[in-house]
Computed example of a mutant assay.
Amino acid sequence: MSITPQQPAELKKKPISFSNILLGSALNLCEVTTLGQPLEVIKTTMAANRNLNFLQSVKHIWSRGGVFGFYQGLIPWAWIEASTKGAALLFVSAEAEYQFKRAGLGNFGAGIMGGVSGGVAQAYLTMGFCTCMKTVEITKAKSAVAGAVPQSSWSAFKQIYNKEGIRGINKGVNAVAIRQMTNWGSRFGFSRLVEEGIRNVTGKTNTDEKLTAMEKILASAIGGGLSAWNQPIEVIRVEMQSKKDDPNRPKKLTVGSAFSYIYKTSGIQGLYRGVAPRICLGIWQTVFMVGFGDMARELVGKLTGETPAAKH
């Protein structure tokens, strides 16, 4: 009796939902315009000025423009980044996940590799020059001359581009790529582990049983917070892009030389400066994108008849 081997199910690529891309851009813009940018400014200030603690950093930021000091770099750089990085992640991660599955990886491994690939694409396509210019805005010296007009964002951009070209406005992009790659890989992995723990505790062992909104937010928030383990990469990125006057800093920094400089001058603690606001930022992004994202998807589905797929 011969047994006909079962043919594997045909592997299909997930379709890209354009309403999902627009929704993601809108949510990212709202997230960064609320608490996102203030936490980003505090995190970057602490990483660039490693002698300042949290409260001292807040006072320093306030001295640079009051409440508006917490929104340095928001317009246009944070808005450009927020409105484009989601599309880059979605397109590249979907294609990469499909190709890794074709190569034989399972859902979990292909998902992580898709996230890693999407994170790298984000860095080189959209986030490199945006994070660089945000850091320039946050760390550049304010004019000490009374009545002098502060340098605008576009003037700073033109000055760096005319002096250093594409490399100048993408300074630190390799560190951004490492950060995004490890961010998405670890966020995905940690979130899935927490979800599994929640299922065990609540008795939802059947994967068809959906987690509640609060359970999904909790799992993603913990995953986002735990992904801050790579804070040294973030501090290195800030140091490479910083405009803070520091005569002791090597002129041309690489990821390796920046790591050595930070370690020599600030020790292991210096490599983790700004980790607290970064954890808060990760949690806020998660709560906003998961909690409000689910409600927004339902609303879009009612208005358009097309329910955007979740992609956090």
Rank of each mutant, 00 (worst) to 15 (best):
G69Q: 04
F68K: 05
P76S: 10
A309E: 06
K251H: 08
F18L: 14
V67T: 06
A309Q: 06
Y263M: 12
R187F: 11
L74C: 00
I112H: 03
G109W: 05
E196R: 14
L39E: 01
Q6D: 12
D246N: 14
A48Y: 00
P150Y: 10
F108G: 01
M127C: 03
A219P: 01
W62I: 10
A221D: 07
S242L: 08
S57R: 08
T254F: 03
G104Q: 04
Y161D: 00
P277S: 05
M127G: 02
I80T: 00
K204F: 12
P250Q: 13
G224K: 06
F288A: 07
E31C: 07
P38F: 05
V32I: 15
G270D: 05
G65A: 08
G223K: 00
A228Q: 15
N248P: 09
A177L: 02
L39W: 01
M181T: 07
S153Q: 11
L193C: 09
V136E: 02
Q37N: 11
A144M: 06
I75D: 00
K302S: 05
F259C: 05
G203K: 11
R278G: 09
S143D: 11
R192P: 00
K244C: 06
A144H: 06
G65Y: 00
W77A: 11
S83L: 07
Y71I: 12
P277G: 02
P38Y: 01
F91L: 12
K134H: 11
F108K: 04
C130A: 14
V145R: 08
E215M: 12
C130Y: 01
Y71A: 09
N248T: 12
T265S: 14
L74T: 06
I61W: 00
P5Y: 00
T265A: 11
Q151F: 10
